[in-house]
Design a protein around this nucleic acid. Structure first.
Lengths: 370, 370
DNA sequence: GTGAAAGCGCTAACAG
DNA sequence: CTGTTAGCGCTTTCAC
């Protein structure tokens, strides 16, 4: 017996009703005195129906409570107007935001969202089999870690795949990411300019392209200034692991004076450990920088300096890419990299003067970005 | 042009493939040298097929990459095995958790989840029309605020509705909630025992049953001890409004020494305002208690005392309720109230001795709950 | 246990 | 513009 069965309950039940047969176009047609195809046309935008006929149909439909059956329509049009969205877990605070914006974007174009999530531990394959049976028009993969052959199967089945917040070498997948590499590098520049000397990186999912690029950018930026030996630990996008990682770093003989954490979600946990377990002041004793710029980063308690993941433009790009492929019924491989910027707050020591990227781009300047 | 279109991009495209026609049962049948119905049976658990036939079919299916078409099946069985989930917004940190667990629970029973979210501002009716066209087998409404006639339409269409984390007077809806009233009362008892004298309540969505019950319980508990005048403000489940509400309360002539905030999501914001805008120490100057017991409540920075929303049992109950109705194809009105308990942390002053509810239940005792 | 045949509710030609 | 007709891919009798 599940725990939920305990507690107060009203076993008496209450009123009951039995499922009614759904109204069909046929019935509406009879009532409106037209043919069944007329009903279909009345509900098809842009179909050629006399205004008077359409009126009659809509009236009859309203009276009967008719709603076109999307399943039947799918069967014949070969378009479900459903997009499968795969997000293994939602604990990174950006995902709820992505989900909301994505749903809104798809809805606006008349698409629905079939969501697959909550299989952190279990394997994703059975899940995937299910998605495909629903003949989704497209698949959006938004977990940084997911078996890549999943996308193989999709493209083989002619279903366009858009990767969100991750890249792939797969030749027939599109992707939308933030500018991870640049972000990592700009953070390095910023921290070096801030006078730090002992750096560390805490990785998310080490195998993901997202983590790989952020780390690569960070190392690249550091090595430009001669720092090639840095502390390293893996948080695996998981709070427990992240805390362990942070403890290891801070307990070292030469603890870092600047830590770049691969995502805000983890960075906040690192900050907690630094302050409450090691009594470190941020940023006086250690600077902490994250990536994603989640809402909580801006809370006074954290005031986390972070490189932004531009969710809205990324979602827009993803939806656009998806629609393009659905409409052209061809699978292309487009990769969009959406630029972000460093949101400078209080968790990292401020540099004395302006900071520029290697190409001259202004990353930060005292007193605001002019 | 959306912002996402800027930034780096590889316009050259890449390889392209055209959607292939999906494999049908007919084709599998030909290849396996059996009839199309045999194929259907091979994929129907519990159908009467000779093991040898099934083997042949499965082999052919594998070779061809066949997957049964769920849409076609829906059309004939009149069961989509899809549950519509309506969650207007996901910013309350409990919702991602609910979503994950719900998806897992449904998936385990062979159901998919069609998610409707991201319409905080927009009206939900057009959204709803869409859901119904996909012939969902059931609808789970998990936003505390949603037009109630939405459920009318569902039950009229024979679709079972389960409300999650909210109640309704509607006679043909089921619901699963936490024990809001008890929670509110226990918090009152705890705060009174802690020696507080000036109480305040910050409401979520004032019209929601969830808020109503939490507030009623709180007031009930306080009035038992003679406190009937309390501070009140509305946060509307919205961070901006919540901060404004908190500012109003703390800036008053006689600011509260104990605040119960209708949800953790808002409570954390209130704590931020108290500390960083008013320089108040928590709990020395003001005690703050929340409801939901979200993950962040346990972070050292907040250490928020909170009444738990037992997500897992609630989700289990909701799924169970839903399955019951789908399987019996009758709509019942069951209301489950899942008990929670007070998670005592550091954001509220501790009472000197054990605290009991009016019925004698132990709410809290020094040194743990024995 | 298996195949033939009849639809599920709808769209999409096709004549008129 | 409208009705008729033929399926979409599948499940489900119904004989065999």
């Amino acid at each position: 017996m599940p725990a939920g069965a305990s507690g107060l309950s009203r076993p008496e039940g209450g009123p009951a009703a039995t499922a009614r047969h759904a109204v069909t176009a046929e019935e509406v047609a009879r009532r409106a005195g037209v043919s069944q195809s007329a009903v279909s046309r009345a509900f098809t935008p842009g179909a050629s129906v006399a205004p008077r006929t359409r009126e009659k149909v809509l009236a009859a439909a309203r009276e009967l409570g008719y709603r076109p059956n999307a399943m039947a329509r799918t069967l014949i049009t070969n378009r479900s107007r459903i997009i499968g969205v795969v997000m293994a877990y939602l604990d990174n605070m950006i995902y709820p935001d992505v989900l909301e914006k994505l749903a809104a974007g798809l809805q606006r174009r008349g698409y629905q969202m079939l969501l697959f999530t909550g299989f952190k531990d279990r394997h994703s394959d059975p899940v995937f089999e299910q998605v495909m049976q629903y003949r989704v028009d497209g698949l959006l993969l938004a977990s940084t870690t997911l078996s890549s052959d999943l996308s193989d199967e999709c493209t083989a089945a002619g279903v366009p795949v858009v990767m969100f917040n991750r890249m792939t070498e797969h030749p027939l997948c599109s992707s939308v990411t933030s500018d991870n590499r640049n972000g990592g590098r700009q953070i390095a520049e910023f921290l070096v300019a801030g006078g730090h000397r002992r750096f560390a990186y805490i990785a998310g999912a080490a195998i993901s392209s997202t983590n790989r690029d952020r780390e690569a950018g960070f190392r690249e930026g550091l090595s430009r200034h001669g720092f090639s030996q840095i502390g390293y630990a893996e948080g695996n996008l998981e709070l427990g692991d992240t805390r362990t990682a942070a403890r290891g770093l801070f307990a070292a003989d030469e603890p870092p004076d600047a830590v770049f954490v691969g995502s805000d979600h983890m960075a906040l946990a690192v900050m907690e450990v630094a302050r409450h377990e090691f009594g470190l002041r941020v940023p006086e004793d250690v600077s902490i920088v994250g990536y994603d710029d989640v809402g909580a980063a801006d809370w006074p308690s954290f005031s986390l300096t972070s490189f932004s993941l531009p969710v809205e433009p990324m979602v827009d790009a993803a939806v656009e890419l998806m629609m393009e492929q659905i409409e052209s019924s061809s699978i292309l491989s487009h990769h969009r990299v959406v630029p972000g910027c460093l949101a400078v707050r209080g968790s990292a020591r401020l540099p004395g003067g302006p900071v520029r990227d290697r190409d001259g781009t202004l990353i930060w300047a005292p007193g605001g970005m002019e």
